[in-house]
Design a protein around this nucleic acid. Structure first.
Length: 469
RNA sequence: GGUCCCAUCGUCUAGUGGUUAGGACGCUGGCCUCUCACGCCGGAAACCGGGGUUCAAGUCCCCGUGGGACUACCA
């Protein structure tokens, strides 16, 4: 009986910008895999690029993770704070003859690379310093002595077996002249020391994997499992970027998306469970597996995300939806102090809003004290021939006992009947009078939400408008 | 250029040798109806090409083609 190892995954973004859609999905897959296996999810910030890393970015990434509900069990660890460890490992490799100092300048390297490319050779390091047995100098770097024979096999959980000829791999730099480790080295050290069992990341890293495996071996570490998830592409099938619209997770929050919608959308990009489209977080934790992750790149489809968002707005528990939309209402300048009123507004609009921002926009008439009438609608329905109907409604409304959806509908229908007209010719003028628009929630719902008093007030104002005209 | 990955409707995908190739978004026809939505019913829409293997191939193999990634003292 073999010992059962705790599953440990990690998300290791570099803080050089916001958390984007692709990174979020990678984080999500890691999170789900650890949760499904009752393991641990570790967050590590890869900030060894001192030039490009910022604290704001770190903050933004953490915020976005939190918003999505991707909580971490350990960290955030900061790679730059671990350079002493990395350096000591570099030292160890040098001592063991598995790494060496190199004094080739970037300019020389660039020159050689260009020439190799021009002559149709592979632009890999030519080993100039490999056997010179140099020692550290001011601008020296440390290179890994990569084996030039043999084959390195990556057993990828998603893509299967991938073989690389070792002579394709060159002696990569593991420590830069500024003393900081490079990505391929630091990531190996940290993953090994943090006991990461499953490295799940974008498939732009597959070509790095054999180098990293060689490093694991040189360092004497156990090699983790790898799973490379396909990229997310834009509509033109190139790597997703700003050109394709919003790519920042938090931008979607600003646009009125619900985190559940984004998570649900993201998980379905590359992963499927039969025909199922809608997944709660708990369902995902229960069902997620790397075996069901597809191998091919996926195109980001904003329309489907929008549909999911609409779905979640429709299905959210009302209290939760009210909570989510409240800040958006406040931002629009609406008075949200009356809970009962807001509850009604949200109920009226939830089946006709694709985003929270959308909802706030169409909710404006509930909060305005003076309505502006939609021009076409007013011309069509705020006319003398409908004034009588409106007047009747206003007059009789105060006496209406059954102020409910059904009661109001019966009431309006009876007025239509008595005036020998269709409900439509009562409802439409009423709609303009109460909402200023030709499009709104059901007129009965609007009346309930607004309350008798405001309804009568707005009808009177509309009547005045008709007279004035 | 080299290395590596990928390939089912426009898009996301189901499919693990025998299916009328299924679902979803979008598009579209209809129903419902006080408008708009929601909801419901229906429609158009796909196995990149060529060779094998097999009684049988979207599914396995090979070769093309197309797309993508990497090829940094970025991660």
């Amino acid at each position: 009986m073999s010992e059962i190892k705790e599953i440990r995954t990690r998300f290791a973004p570099s803080p050089t910008g916001f958390l984007h859609i692709g990174g979020a999905r990678t984080a999500l897959f890691n999170w789900l895999y650890s949760r499904h296996n009752k393991g641990k999810f570790i967050l590590r910030i890869e900030d060894t690029d001192q030039m490009r890393s910022t604290e704001e970015s770190t903050r933004a990434i953490l915020d976005a993770m939190t918003w999505l509900g991707l909580n971490w069990d350990e960290g955030p660890f900061f790679q730059a704070q671990r350079v002493d460890i990395h350096r000591s490992m570099v030292e160890k490799l040098v001592e063991e003859g598995k790494a060496y100092f190199c004094t080739c300048t970037p300019e020389e390297l660039e020159e050689k690379r260009k020439r190799a490319l021009a002559e149709g050779r592979k632009p890999k390091y030519d080993g100039t310093c490999r056997d010179k047995n140099l020692s550290r100098t001011k601008n020296s770097v440390v290179r890994f002595r990569s084996p030039d024979v043999g084959v390195t096999i990556v057993h990828d959980l998603i893509k299967g077996k991938i073989a690389f000829e070792n002579d394709e791999l060159d002696d990569l730099i593991i420590e830069r002249s500024d003393g900081y480790p490079t990505y391929n080295f630091a990531v190996v050290i940290d993953d090994a020391l943090m006991k990461i069992t499953h490295v799940i990341r974008g498939d732009d890293h597959v070509n790095n994997t054999p180098r990293q495996i060689l490093l694991y071996e040189a360092l004497g570490y156990d090699i983790p499992e790898f799973g490379h998830v396909p990229m997310i592409l834009g509509a033109d099938k190139t790597r997703l970027s700003k050109r394709h619209g919003a790519t920042s997770v938090m931008a979607y929050k600003e646009m009125g998306y619900l985190p559940e919608a984004l998570v649900n959308y993201l998980v379905r990009l590359g992963w499927a469970h039969g025909d199922q489209e809608i997944f709660s977080m708990n369902a995902l934790i229960d069902l997620f597996s790397l075996a069901a992750v597809g191998k091919s790149a996926a195109v980001f489809n904003p329309d489907k995300l929008l549909w999911l968002n609409q779905h979640y707005i429709k299905e959210y528990p009302r209290e939760k939806l009210v909570e989510e939309v409240n800040p958006v209402f406040v931002k629009s300048g609406y008075d949200t102090s009356n809970d009962d009123f807001i509850n009604h507004v949200v109920s009226d609009l939830r089946t006709r809003s694709k985003t929270l921002v959308d909802m706030a926009q169409s909710a404006d008439f509930y909060f305005k004290s003076e309505l502006e009438y939609d021009q076409e609608g007013a011309e069509k329905f705020l006319r003398p021939e409908f004034a009588g109907h409106l007047k009747k409604v206003a007059e009789k409304l105060s006496g209406l006992q059954d102020y409910t959806k059904q009661g109001i509908e019966d009431f309006l229908r009876s007025i239509a009947e008595k005036n020998n007209t269709k409900l439509k010719f009562i409802a439409q003028p009423l709609r303009i009078a109460l909402t200023g628009k030709t499009v709104s929630p059901g007129i009965d719902d609007v009346m309930i939400t607004l309350g008798k008093e405001k309804v009568i007030e707005r009808i009177e104002r509309a009547l005045a408008y008709i007279d004035y005209k």
